[in-house]
Amino acid sequence: MSGSTGGQHVPGARLSRSPKPGRIAAYLGLAVLGALIGFAGSLVQGAWFPGGLVLALLATAGLFYGSLRATGTQLGALAPAVGWLLAIVLLSIGRPEGDGLFSAGIGPLVFMLGGMALAVMCATMSRPPHPGGGPGRLGK
């Protein structure tokens, strides 16, 4: 078993292994999906207030939590959160002419802060249990 010595778990052993290409591709795909959800949420939350705001936040929460469950790691929730955050920041900056995608008001602020809070909540959740793992402590 890699990462263990004589049946004992070595802390940080997972960090020293090189990541698998499939996992890297999955995280990059989740980041792109996060950017798409951020872009779509930016449009929807301003178009149909307050229903669009609720829909955008539900889609954001579904993406972050679904990514956490699909990958089984906190990085799985952080990858789409990074893409989401980059998209909404770039869309909120606007252009020198004054054009911006976000409307004025409380909706965009609730979307940004609510999405960031959802990302933090999903990234700090405990990892789902591994299938077949029995109750009790490791090594017992």
Rank of each mutant, 00 (worst) to 15 (best):
A87C: 07
S67F: 14
G3K: 03
L53N: 02
I37V: 15
G46I: 07
L58C: 14
L118E: 05
W48T: 15
A25C: 06
A25T: 03
L118V: 02
Q74C: 05
L101Q: 06
Q74S: 14
A79S: 05
F102I: 15
L91T: 07
I106D: 02
L55D: 02
A81L: 12
V54M: 09
V10R: 12
T73A: 11
R17W: 14
G6S: 11
G29V: 09
G62A: 10
G6D: 14
G94A: 14
D99T: 15
G134I: 11
V44Q: 01
P50F: 00
D99L: 09
G46D: 09
T124A: 05
H9Y: 09
A47P: 09
K140C: 10
G83D: 03
S42N: 11
T124M: 04
I88K: 06
G98M: 03
S126R: 14
P21T: 14
V10D: 13
A117G: 08
L28D: 04
A79R: 00
P50D: 08
A13S: 15
A77C: 07
G133S: 14
L57P: 09
M121W: 07
I106A: 07
P108R: 10
G105M: 05
L15E: 10
T124Q: 11
G139R: 11
V32T: 05
G100W: 09
M1R: 11
A119L: 04
E97Y: 04
G29H: 01
T73L: 04
A59N: 03
K140H: 15
G66C: 07
L101S: 12
L109Y: 04
A123N: 05
M125S: 08
K20W: 04
L109N: 07
S42Q: 12
Y27H: 03
M1L: 09
M116H: 04
L57T: 10
L28W: 12
G72D: 05
F102W: 02
A79G: 00
G3F: 03
W48P: 13
V32L: 12
P131T: 10
L113S: 10
G132H: 00
A59C: 15
A104I: 07
V82N: 01
L78A: 07
A13K: 09
L30R: 03
A70C: 00
G76N: 02
S18L: 09
R14P: 06
M116Y: 06
L78R: 05
G29M: 05
V54N: 06
A104W: 02
A13M: 05
G98I: 07
A61F: 03
G12H: 14
L53E: 03
G139K: 08
G107W: 10
P131W: 03
A13L: 08
R95G: 05
G133A: 13
G72V: 14
M112A: 14
V32Q: 00
V10T: 11
G29K: 12
T71W: 00
R14N: 04
L43K: 09
P21N: 07
M125H: 11
L28P: 05
P50K: 08
A104D: 12
S2T: 12
